[in-house]
C-alpha cells in the first residue's frame, strides 16, 4: 500500500509526474495563501470593490462590460436573478472562453449556449477577462498562444482517453448528453480555449482544475487534441470519424448500391 505501486515500474515519466504533482500542489497552496491574503488585504479594509484602481486593460474591459454584459450579469458582475449568474470569482479564463467562442453574450436563455461567431475580438475578450479578474479573481490562463508544442502527445492521449473521450468521443467530434445537451466538437477549439474549458468547466463540463490535471497534463492533452485534428487519415477519407454508424451507411449507400447497379446491368431487369 505504498504510492510506489508495481504499475509505476512503467518508467520515469510517471515518477516525474508524481513529483511534479506534489511540487505543484505545494506551490499552489503557497500561491493560494498569498493570493487569499492579498485579496483580503485589498477588499476588507475598503469594504467596497473598485477601491483598487483598474489596469488600463481592465478599464477597457469595463467599458465593454457596461455596454454588452451588464444587463444580465449586473452592475458589479454580481449577477441578476433569473438572467445571468454572478461572475465574481469565475476568473479571466472563463470569460475569455465564453466570449472568444461566441457563447457570450448569449442571444437567449437556452439549455446550453452554443458556439457561434464571437461578438468581440480576442483582444477585447482579454480586456473583459482582465476586468472580471480584477473584480473577483479566479482561474487564469497561462501566457502564450501555443500550448500544443509544450505537450507530450502520447501521454496526452492517455489522459484524453480517460478524462475526455467519454463525452467528446475518441475523435474529438463531440457527443450527445442527456435531454438535448451535448459535448461540443473540439474541431474549432484553439489551444487557449481547450485550456480554459478544462480549467473552468463551462456549463455541464466537469472542472479539471490544476489539481486534477496539472498545467503540463493540460498541455499534453492539448498537444494530443491538436495533433488528432491536424493529422490526416492514413486510410483514406475518414467518413467524419463517427465510427461504425457512418461505416454502416457507407456500405449500403456505396457498396450495395454500386453492386446492385452492376447486377442490374449484368442481368435482366424484369
Amino acid at each position: 500500500m505504498t504510492p510506489d505501486t508495481p504499475r509505476l515500474a512503467a518508467g520515469a515519466p510517471k515518477q516525474r509526474s508524481r513529483v511534479r504533482r506534489r511540487l505543484n500542489s505545494a506551490l499552489r497552496m503557497f500561491a493560494a495563501l498569498v493570493f487569499a491574503g492579498g485579496i483580503y488585504a485589498i477588499v476588507a479594509p475598503g469594504g467596497a470593490q473598485g477601491a483598487a484602481p483598474l489596469t488600463p486593460a481592465a478599464e477597457a474591459g469595463k467599458a465593454l462590460y457596461d455596454v454588452s454584459c451588464i444587463s444580465c450579469h449586473g452592475a458589479n458582475a454580481q449577477g441578476v436573478e433569473g438572467r445571468g449568474p454572478s461572475l465574481i470569482g469565475v476568473g479571466s479564463a472563463a470569460v475569455e472562453f465564453q466570449v472568444e467562442t461566441g457563447r457570450m453574450p448569449a442571444a437567449r436563455q437556452e439549455a446550453q449556449a452554443e458556439r457561434k461567431d464571437p461578438m468581440f475580438t480576442n483582444d477585447q475578450a482579454r480586456q473583459l477577462g482582465a476586468f472580471i479578474q480584477e473584480l473577483g479573481g479566479g482561474p487564469q490562463l497561462p501566457e502564450g498562444e501555443d500550448f500544443a508544442s509544450k505537450g507530450d502527445i502520447a501521454r496526452g492521449g492517455e489522459l484524453y482517453r480517460i478524462n475526455c473521450s467519454s463525452c467528446h468521443a475518441f475523435s474529438g467530434g463531440g457527443g450527445a448528453l442527456s435531454s438535448g445537451k451535448f459535448a461540443p466538437t473540439l474541431e474549432p477549439a484553439t489551444d487557449r480555449q481547450i485550456y480554459a474549458a478544462m480549467l473552468t468547466g463551462p456549463q455541464n463540463m466537469p472542472v479539471f482544475g490544476d489539481n486534477e490535471l496539472t498545467p503540463q497534463d493540460k498541455f499534453d492533452i492539448i498537444a494530443y487534441v491538436q495533433n488528432l485534428k491536424s493529422d490526416s487519415d492514413p486510410g483514406g477519407w475518414g467518413l467524419g470519424r463517427f465510427g461504425p454508424v457512418t461505416e454502416g451507411l457507407a456500405i449500403f449507400l456505396v457498396g450495395v448500391v454500386a453492386l446492385v447497379f452492376a447486377a442490374l446491368w449484368i442481368a435482366g431487369k424484369s
Binding site: I162, S166, F170, L239, P244
Partner: peptide, 20 residues
C-alpha cells in the same frame, strides 16, 4: 474510405470509453 481506425480508439482499458 477509412474503416475502424483503431489507432484513434486507443487500447482497451476498463475505465475508458468514448461517446458514440
Amino acid at each position: 474510405f477509412q474503416i475502424n481506425p483503431i489507432w484513434l480508439f486507443g487500447p482497451y482499458e476498463a475505465a475508458v470509453v468514448s461517446a458514440g
